[in-house]
Amino acid sequence: MNDIFRIPSVSWRCLRVWQRDRDAYMKFYKLSLLGNLGDPILYLVAMGYGLGRFLNQIEGMTYLEFIAPGLVISSSMFAASFECTYGSFLRMIYLKTYDAIIATPLSIEDVVSGDILWGTTKGMISGTIMFAVVGAFGLIDSVWAAGIPLLIVLVSFLFASLSMAATSFVKTFEAFNYYITLFLTPMFFFSGVFFPLNRLPDWVSVVSKFLPLTYAVEISRALIYGQPSWIVPVGLALLLGPALFFYCVSINLMKRRVIQ
């Protein structure tokens, strides 16, 4: 059990795996972008404009303004998560890419770490583009929004690591439903992206306090609309801690799975 919680020895060579993932991505990046950005942009337009017409202001914002920051962050979450679940699982189990790479000077720690870095990168790509889209809608009205990229990096890294940890337990593609349908999707809806949590039953807001996305959404709203408060540093710490924890644990778990 102790091996799961120790700090893995990762070398700079993990960048070679990141490069490999990048090269593979560059061949099909248009399709991949469509997959990662189609949903959040649709939500922004359909919910923001469509549903927003029928709603009063929320916390002094139009509905479009209310949901835009959370959609930037959740697009990072989903892009990083899909990469380190389906993408990594496919490479590990079906394509045996991991096996091929660990026959070279790279170790399994390097390979998993490289994949997490790549998942982080994909989250950053999606989040950054969504951030630009939100900007194009004219929704950014504070210099504090310059802090959003940092938040995107952190959220992407957290969900890439968390997803990799989930992947280390998964035996079939279908099993990802546990993680995605029972964890990611509910989190997407109950972390304050679409509605304020303080109007919901108490237990919902209690549960939401344990969801990392809740803090990320709050921070994103605070930054984009220039109302920074104590939630920014505290929230960032609450994201960084679990991110580093799951980064280490997921590498150790994957090592236990692959090296037998």
């Binding site: 060579r13 070679r16 490069q19 490999r20 090269d23 593979a24 061949k27 099909f28 394509l95 045996k96 890419t97 096996d99 091929a100 790479i101 026959a103 070279t104 000077p105 790279l106």
Partner: peptide, 27 residues
Amino acid sequence: GVVSQENNLDTDLSVLENLLVYARYFN
């Protein structure tokens, strides 16, 4: 050099890219 039992080639990449990407693992 290792030739494993399964053909664990990188199916995302072309023949040449498979070799170049592998060479990069060896620096």
